[in-house]
């Protein structure tokens, strides 16, 4: 048996629906049709009345989830693409994210964002928006990079009493496979060492993890051991795990697929530089997409985002190789 990242997301939702009567799913084309990416395929039939098609109304979709959450439900909202969540941005950041702070009433809900670039998708179906949501207090922002994490972190998110922005990478949907799903929950908010090493730390998350692992393998053949940290969650950010890794290696490169101004990589570098400056043997570096909209053509797209090639070049530069 082989399970994809997308299967894991569907199976996690099926399990949540089966085990928790408070869960329902709401989104565009997710009912009988099964969703644009088939992340809810078959669920409307298995769970009648709990997998509901919404109008093309991102603002009202989120508002609906907030109201249902106040009444004790655990809604899962599927945005068709992360890019479209900006049409529901106000309800996410001003309604969902502030409710608990203002009223002491929790607002448990999940917004699933199919994010990240795939070749040919262009400026409006490729965005990585974890940074803008992480900027707002009151939200948890998760970026699973593996099939196992996609499954267990989604279940973990259902159990949380807060609004969760669940960033699932579209490139990983079909490209990642696992033999079986985990049985244990992944603790929310903890990074993991995806590959141990002693010469430098590469911090990555979501699809960039796999580019970083490829680089670690490439450089290992040359005798350089790269430690790869998978953030898993960008808010909260597990500074301790990152700092401990930098303490071991003395060098930091942080890689993200999002745009370069501010953001997750800037946050990681800022924290390490301000709290762990003495641990560093070289200036910390970061690598992001270029500061343009995500291009359509494969030639441009491949050069827009970090790849194993550009990460390897940055890593060699940082190591003085």
């Amino acid at each position: 048996m082989s399970i994809t990242y997308l299967d894991a997301i569907r199976e996690a939702q099926a399990r949540a629906l089966a085990e928790d009567p408070r869960v329902f799913i709401y989104g565009q084309d997710i009912g009988a049709f099964g969703g644009a990416f088939k992340a809810t395929k078959g669920l409307a039939q298995r769970f009648p009345g709990r997998v509901l098609d919404s109008p093309i109304s991102e603002d009202a979709m989120i508002g609906m989830a907030v109201g249902a959450s106040v009444e004790g439900m655990r809604p899962i909202i599927e945005m068709q693409f992360a890019d479209f969540s900006t049409a529901g941005f106000n309800q996410i950041v001003n309604q969902a994210a502030t409710l608990h702070w203002r009223t002491n009433v929790p607002c448990p809900m999940i917004v699933r964002l199919p994010c990240g670039g795939t070749s040919g998708s262009g400026p409006f179906h490729s965005q990585s928006l974890e940074t803008i949501y992480a900027h707002y207090p009151g939200l948890v922002v998760l970026t699973p990079a593996t099939v196992e994490d996609a499954y267990s972190m989604l279940l973990g998110a259902v159990a949380l009493d807060d609004p969760v922005i669940f960033c699932e990478h579209k490139y990983l949907y079909y490209h990642l496979k696992a033999e079986q799903l985990p049985t244990e929950a992944t603790p929310i908010g903890k990074a993991r060492i995806a590959r141990p090493g002693r010469d430098m730390t590469v911090v990555a998350y979501s699809a960039m993890l796999h580019e970083a692992l490829a680089v670690a393998q490439e450089l290992a053949a040359e005798g350089t051991e790269i430690e790869v940290v998978d953030l898993r969650s960008v808010k909260p950010l597990d500074t301790d795990t990152v700092m401990a890794s930098v303490a071991r290696t003395g060098r930091l490169l942080c890689v993200g697929e999002a745009w370069p101004w501010g953001g997750v990589t800037a946050e990681v570098v800022a924290r390490v530089a301000s709290e762990g400056f003495g641990l560093l043997d070289a200036p910390p570096r970061r690598l992001n997409a270029k500061d343009t909209p995500v291009p359509y053509h494969p030639n441009l797209w491949a050069a827009h985002r970090p790849t194993a090639r550009s990460i390897a070049a940055a890593a060699r530069d940082l190591l003085g190789l």
Binding site: M64, V66, G67, A68, V70, M73, P75
Partner: peptide, 16 residues
Amino acid sequence: AMISVVNGALMARRLK
């Protein structure tokens, strides 16, 4: 912005 939130509370009641 509160209209859809009211809708959600009503949907929750319906689901329950």
